[in-house]
Computed example of a mutant assay.
Amino acid sequence: LTARTARRAGVWAVSPVALLCTGIVIVGLGASALVGRDLLHAADPAGGTALLMVTSALDPGAAGPRDSPLFALVACAAFATTLAAVAGITLAAASSLARDFAVKSGAQGEGKASAREIRRARWAVAGIGALAVLLSAYTHDRNPQVLLSLSFAAAASVLPPVLLYAIFRPGFDARGVRWTVYGTLPLIGVLMVLSPAFSGTPVALFPEWDFDVFPLQTPGLVTIPAGFLLGLLGSGRGPGGAPDGHHRHRTRRAPVRTRDGV
């Protein structure tokens, strides 16, 4: 990964993201104009049902959502999109677990998956899927903003340090990545549990509990600098425990030669 490749990927990613954000704004304004702000807020304060309510408003001839072809089409598209996203995340997590905990073998070096890795990946898919179903069933009537904040904080605290250090820091290696991931994710989990988003407020995930000692709703203000610091510390040591700067200094030092070649 080079800086030129990262810039090119960023240029290609900006246009779809900008188009998506523009579409969301247009849909939100259209929903507010066609349906009304009060009805949207009464159905879902977070605006999650705005798109479906707009489809009902755009098909005035239908007696209800069940008789609206446009509503059915949009609902199917939303369900297919959600299913594809969930499947992709589940497969990525299962593949990561299967590869990270796999026994070193010759097949790994050739980019091939052994039968043991495939079997481990299948069990990982089943386990992650079952855990996700149980979590969603238990929290279906609670505020989903907490889980969204957790995912956003994890992405913002892990991805930028890894990407920026990989592009601009020559000594950044796999050890720095491990320090960033394994050090930041537990910190995010602990701070989220101790935050008002988890307990102590009416909109918390568990409003009946009250043990919030971390004052912020999201831990990004703490975990993002922690991710950069952990990545810096993890990649700051070279072979044998010596700092990278000292190691590079030693390797760059060349023997002093005189004019006679001694």
Rank of each mutant, 00 (worst) to 15 (best):
L1F: 07
T2Y: 02
T5I: 06
G10H: 01
L19F: 12
L20V: 07
G28R: 10
G30P: 00
A31F: 02
D38N: 08
A43V: 04
G48R: 13
A50L: 02
L51C: 11
M53P: 11
S56Y: 00
S56C: 13
L58I: 07
D59G: 07
G61H: 13
A62M: 11
R66W: 15
S68E: 00
S68T: 12
F71I: 09
C76M: 11
C76T: 14
A77C: 14
F79N: 09
T82N: 05
V86S: 06
L91Q: 06
A93K: 03
R99P: 01
D100S: 12
K104I: 06
S105D: 05
S105C: 09
G109I: 07
E110N: 13
R120K: 13
G129V: 07
A130V: 13
Y138Q: 05
T139C: 12
L147R: 00
S149K: 10
P160N: 04
P161D: 10
F168Q: 08
T180A: 01
T184N: 06
P186N: 01
I188S: 06
L191A: 07
A197R: 15
T201L: 05
V203Y: 13
L205T: 01
E208K: 14
Q217A: 14
T218K: 09
P219E: 00
L221V: 00
I224Q: 03
P225C: 01
F228P: 08
P239L: 03
P239S: 07
A242M: 06
H246R: 13
T251C: 14
T251A: 15
R252A: 15
R257H: 15
D260T: 15
V262I: 08
